[in-house]
Design a protein around this nucleic acid. Structure first.
Length: 283
DNA sequence: CACCATGTTCCTTG
DNA sequence: CCAAGGAACATGGT
């Protein structure tokens, strides 16, 4: 489930697992995820390189590493797309069907698997330049948000998915933030009142930080299934369903009662994607 | 078979 | 040049 909160929790795990680890070899099984970087270039850059840490920008993962030869700190950009996963796996474990890139770290492999291959694992960092502010950065103010919405006639839901407005919100948390703010997803961005924008600004930060907290406390799937050792994910596991109800109030709840007023949650399509909301509580 | 899915980028149109 | 809309990418679940 890769939106900002899921990426943040994963990044914390990977930072811990990869810091100080050295890469022996690089296997590229799906060229497409490398984007503009050639498999050879990636292999040369990473061979004998040491990871110095993993950080996040929007939904991107930044793998900082020290190459073997140049001694110049470099960065590898990762993105999970819709279905990407990254984890460590014992070297004798069979590779998953959709392993896109495998890094041999010695006793373990770092695996980037991605069923749909929409994700990225590349030395090309140009996508970062297009990102708007981090939701928790002090530069992301209510005023800043207002500025970015002022000239747009697009529905506010669609604008929230625009990573240049604010980085990290995806289809799930866009609906959730609008519900918390009591703002209708179909409102043209430029028509939001300052009061609504302030509520939305607060809701965005609340929804995201609550999800990070949830992801940090929910039991992680590090064992049980040998083939998924050290795999992190959360959200749909049956054990988590009790939390799930609390966590997502509108997303994927079409026809079910609004948690505030009981009215059936509606689903509409905007910019080719589903939006869920309460017609009574959001206007 | 039909439709839906956590995302980004590219192309076209106005 | 910019904003907006839609298709493309690729695979699997229901």
């Amino acid at each position: 489930m890769p939106e900002l909160p899921e990426v943040e929790v994963l990044v914390r795990q990977l930072d811990h697992l990869l810091r100080g680890r050295k890469v022996r070899t690089v296997k590229v099984r799906r060229r497409r995820v490398l984007g503009k970087t050639s498999p050879k270039k990636l292999a040369v850059a990473l061979r004998e390189a040491t990871f110095t840490g993993v950080t996040r920008r929007g939904k991107f993962l930044l793998f900082n590493f020290l190459p073997a030869k140049t001694r110049t700190l470099s960065v590898l950009l990762g993105h999970l797309g819709m279905t990407g996963r990254m984890y460590l796996s014992p070297q004798d474990a069979p590779l998953p069907k959709h392993a896109a890139v495998v890094l041999d770290l010695g006793p373990e492999n770092f695996i980037f698997e991605d069923t749909r291959y929409f994700g990225k694992f590349t030395l090309d960092t140009t996508p970062l330049a297009r990102l708007g502010p981090e939701p928790f950065d002090k530069t992301f103010t209510s005023k800043k948000l207002a500025e970015r919405l002022r000239n747009s006639s697009q529905p506010i839901k669609t604008k929230l998915l625009d990573q240049s407005v604010v980085a990290g919100i995806g289809n799930i948390y866009a609906s959730e933030a609008l519900f918390r703010a009591g703002v209708s997803p179909v409102t043209p961005a430029r028509q939001l009142t300052p009061k609504q924008i302030k509520r939305l600004w607060t809701a965005i930060r609340q929804v995201l930080s609550q999800a990070i907290r949830f992801g940090s406390t929910v039991p992680l799937n590090y064992g049980g299934d040998n083939s998924k050792d050290n795999l992190f994910y959360f959200g749909t596991a049956a054990e988590a369903s009790d939390f799930y109800e609390e966590r997502l109030r509108v997303y994927d709840r079409e026809g079910r009662p609004c948690s505030k007023c009981g009215t059936a949650i509606q689903r509409i399509f905007q910019a080719g994607r589903s939006t869920f909301f309460c017609v009574r509580c959001q206007n």
